[in-house]
Amino acid sequence: MSAELSFIIFLLLRMAIAAAFVVTASIIAERSGPVIGALVATLPISAGPSYVFLALDHDAAFIAQGALASLPINGATIVLALIYVVLAQRYGLTISCGAAVLVWIALASIIRQFDWSLTAGLAVNFVAFGICIPLLARYRHVKMPLVTRRWYDVPFRASLVATLVAIVVSTSGWVGPKISGIMALYPIVFTSMMIILHPRIGGPPTAAVLANAAWGLLGFGMAIAVLHVAVAQFGSTIGLSLALTTCIAWNLTLWWIGRRKLSLNRK
């Protein structure tokens, strides 16, 4: 087997694995409502496979450096969510999603210009989430209409994530860890949710899903910080495992707090 054919086969396999993650997460989210759906959406559905495959091709230092670039990008993602949520109350998909994505790209371009430390990346997240979470709170509670899944919904999301993984993995060797870390965190799941749900159920209900995702996204930022530290100390396998554990534990805690509040309100 030639080197080129081997590369294509393994790339397609990686894309298929990433797509399988998205299909599973999409089914869980659609059957569980906006709150659980938001928590599922903030799991590393797209970034996780990207980082796993990067770890197969590069050493721990590459992954640790990529995580430093990913950390401030997580702050840009919560800003994207805020822009979309606010605009979606009055405007259609093109303006709401388009403006949010353009702001994300602009912030990513600025972030790319700097060499980030762990402290600086955490500070960006602290400021971004400290501003955005209170502003998003008023948009979290919206009556959700019944969502009927169409045949192309899951394949569309899966193809987007698979394409992102393919781009990150195939270009990582020449763009380096910083750009790879930025591309790995493009909010492909949020974007696909906007594109699919907004025309079907309207802006405010779609915005409510993203608004509910704010706290989960904060935990995702913590997981990126854990990834950077753990990979440098223990290697890629342990580092990635600890980062995933951080995400899952954080979201389970949010779910438990939400259930407890609901139970207390019923009494």
Score class of each variant (00 low, 15 high):
182 I>A: 07
194 M>I: 08
175 V>G: 05
190 F>Y: 08
191 T>S: 12
175 V>T: 09
170 S>W: 15
186 Y>N: 02
180 S>F: 04
178 K>Y: 11
184 A>C: 13
191 T>M: 09
179 I>A: 10
184 A>L: 10
194 M>Y: 08
188 I>S: 01
168 V>A: 07
169 V>A: 08
177 P>Q: 04
201 I>T: 03
199 P>N: 14
188 I>Q: 03
196 I>Q: 02
177 P>C: 08
187 P>G: 06
199 P>C: 10
192 S>L: 07
201 I>H: 07
201 I>Q: 12
179 I>F: 12
188 I>Y: 00
171 T>G: 12
190 F>A: 09
197 L>G: 05
189 V>L: 00
172 S>W: 00
198 H>N: 12
188 I>K: 06
195 I>G: 01
169 V>H: 07
176 G>Y: 05
201 I>G: 05
198 H>P: 00
176 G>K: 02
196 I>L: 08
174 W>I: 13
200 R>W: 04
195 I>V: 09
193 M>P: 03
177 P>T: 05
173 G>D: 15
190 F>H: 03
193 M>R: 14
174 W>V: 09
179 I>S: 06
187 P>I: 13
176 G>L: 07
175 V>P: 09
172 S>C: 15
188 I>C: 05
200 R>T: 06
179 I>Y: 04
191 T>W: 14
181 G>L: 06
195 I>S: 07
187 P>T: 03
200 R>M: 03
191 T>F: 10
187 P>R: 00
189 V>K: 06
197 L>A: 14
177 P>W: 00
189 V>S: 05
197 L>H: 01
192 S>Q: 13
192 S>C: 15
200 R>K: 15
168 V>L: 09
193 M>K: 08
190 F>S: 08
190 F>M: 14
173 G>S: 11
173 G>N: 13
170 S>P: 02
183 M>I: 14
185 L>C: 07
176 G>W: 06
175 V>I: 15
191 T>H: 00
175 V>N: 09
196 I>P: 02
190 F>N: 06
189 V>C: 01
187 P>N: 14
187 P>W: 05
170 S>G: 13
187 P>D: 02
181 G>A: 09
184 A>W: 01
178 K>H: 09
171 T>A: 15
170 S>F: 14
180 S>H: 08
188 I>L: 02
189 V>A: 05
176 G>H: 01
186 Y>S: 01
172 S>H: 07
185 L>H: 04
193 M>L: 14
189 V>G: 04
191 T>E: 06
191 T>A: 08
180 S>P: 03
194 M>W: 07
198 H>L: 11
177 P>Y: 03
184 A>K: 03
194 M>E: 03
182 I>H: 06
170 S>M: 14
188 I>D: 02
174 W>Q: 13
180 S>E: 04
201 I>A: 08
186 Y>E: 10
182 I>S: 00
192 S>I: 08
195 I>F: 09
185 L>K: 05
190 F>Q: 04
186 Y>H: 04
177 P>L: 05
189 V>W: 06
192 S>D: 00
200 R>G: 04
180 S>V: 14
184 A>S: 13
